[in-house]
Amino acid sequence: MYNFLEKMGNVDRRVIFLIIGMVVLLPLLFPFGLPVKATKTTIDVYDAVEAIPDGGKVLVSFEYGPSTKPEIHPMAFAILRHLFHKGHPVIIMCLWPDGLFMAQEVIHQVAELEYDLKYGVDYVNLGYRPGNEAIIKGITRGFESVYTIDTQGLPLSSIPIMRGVETVADIDFIFSLSAGYPGSVEWVQYAADPLQIPFSSGTTSIQVNEVLPYVQAGQMQGIIAGMPAAAEYEGLIIEHGHFDMPGDATRFMDAQSIAHLVIVLFIILGNTAYYIKRKKEQKY
């Protein structure tokens, strides 16, 4: 047994890559549907969306690209389905250039195909503007100082949904789909905190620890933390009748859970092997 564990400690890293690859691939090919239970931070986001007053306008900002698409894209689908089902007008903007393509994909599927909503009335896509947090700062002064036209070239003054929305202070809820900088932290610093606007975010797993202090301090209303939380949110909107089909995140959860389990096993084995090796070295 000791010898086996010692050998495990010296195993070629390519073997580990191969095992991880297999445990991710197999559940994707043969799913078995592990249950997903919502955590408090995800439920907080759901409750915050539920608390938006009827007809309240929501700003959804896309701050991710293809590299983090598997994590954030399912959140974008889930949150927009929830918002559109509740009948909230949604204003979409992008702080990342690739965010525009992500937004277009989600809008096409959710707003156009699933809900058949009217552009300019039920939702609008303002598109990407360079400037990072300066854009957030800009819309606290006025949307028109940053966006003169939307992605379809329409002047903001001619878009029905933008009537009564001069600055971001006229927005009832902000949701940021964030994969880094600029993202959740900048929204807290430059819009949500100074103007006291309800704000929440869906982030990549890697960002969670950076953003969590803002949730803890009440500066954010919960957080959708990575793909597992996206699956939880998909579950919540199905459970409360906002949508009827599980999304991608739920479908991927089997692979995610099994991979976690295997990694935990590797960590235990690796540490045991390291411990035995150190003991042996001390002996001699």
Partner: peptide, 19 residues
């Protein structure tokens, strides 16, 4: 008319900012 406001849109102190 500026907007229709629900009680919960006002802060605890009954505050709201307008541009």
């Amino acid at each position: 008319a500026e907007k229709s406001v629900l009680p919960l849109e006002l802060s605890k102190e009954g505050r709201m900012t307008v541009a």
